[in-house]
Amino acid sequence: MKILAFAGSNSEESINKKLVTSVAKSFNNDNVEILDLNDFEMPIYKNEREKTTGIPKLAYDFAEKIDESDLLLISLAEHNGAYSTAFKNIFDWVSRIPGRHHFGDKPTFLMATSPGKMGGSTVLNIAANRLPFNGAKVIDIFSLPFFFEFFNSETGEIINEDKAVELKAKVEKIKNELAV
């Protein structure tokens, strides 16, 4: 099984990238590729730009990464209650590829984390409701609040026992459903 993992953030110190990287390690018997959205930076989408220059090759490259995968692990950064601009821009460009269901009808595990008590739950709820319309088959969601208290960045592990148990159960459920 090929797994594609990425954080919906372009921060070089992204806590969501730390989370998704940690979760990806739970699928240690599989082929996991972790993407960095910085490798897919494109001009901000606008209709006129698409008409004059077309869809950037990086949008096709990102879509190809999705198409080559069997499972998506996405941890979304929450910026002012919604997606980060970096994620939304890639999402917008990929949506313009003719005949494409953005997320390729792939099983998707959505996650979010933040330093506060909400754990990115606002963006997670937006994504869980929106992304299925765009070809993400959301099989579960996970929110990690209080990132700096609940996650050990040196070991890459969740140190809050309740959240660690919750995540482990969700990962096992996904593995069982997909026969990983």
Rank of each mutant, 00 (worst) to 15 (best):
I126A: 08
G99E: 10
H101N: 13
H101G: 05
R96K: 15
G104Y: 02
K106W: 02
S121K: 11
R100G: 09
T113G: 00
A112Q: 01
A112G: 05
P107K: 12
I126L: 14
L124A: 04
A112H: 01
L124G: 00
A128D: 08
N129I: 06
G135I: 10
I126K: 12
A127T: 00
P132H: 09
R100H: 10
I97A: 01
G104C: 09
T122L: 13
N134E: 15
I126V: 12
R96Y: 14
L110T: 08
A136L: 06
P107I: 03
P115T: 05
R100D: 03
A127R: 03
V94Q: 04
L124R: 00
T113Y: 00
A128F: 03
P107D: 12
D105V: 05
G135H: 08
H101F: 05
L131K: 07
P132C: 11
V123M: 01
S121V: 13
N129A: 15
F109Q: 10
G116R: 08
G120R: 07
G120E: 03
M111W: 01
A127D: 00
K117P: 13
S114K: 04
G116S: 13
S121Q: 11
H102L: 13
R96C: 15
T122F: 08
N125G: 15
S121H: 05
L131A: 12
G119P: 03
M118N: 14
P132I: 10
G104W: 02
N125R: 12
N134Y: 15
A136C: 00
N129M: 10
F133M: 15
R130V: 14
A127E: 01
T122Q: 13
G120W: 09
A128N: 13
T113D: 00
D105H: 12
P107Q: 01
T122N: 13
L124Y: 00
S95I: 05
I126R: 03
L110G: 08
H101Y: 05
S114L: 05
P115V: 11
I97C: 00
F133T: 11
T108E: 04
S121Y: 02
D105I: 06
P98W: 11
L124Q: 04
I97F: 00
I126W: 07
W93Q: 13
T113S: 14
P115E: 06
S114M: 00
V123R: 07
F133K: 15
F133R: 15
F133G: 10
G116D: 14
G104D: 08
K106Q: 07
G135T: 07
G116Q: 08
P115A: 02
R130G: 02
G135C: 07
K117S: 14
V94A: 01
P107N: 11
R100P: 08
V123G: 08
F103E: 03
V123I: 14
N125A: 09
G99A: 03
P98I: 03
R96A: 09
N129H: 12
G119S: 03
V123E: 07
K117N: 10
F103K: 02
H102Q: 11
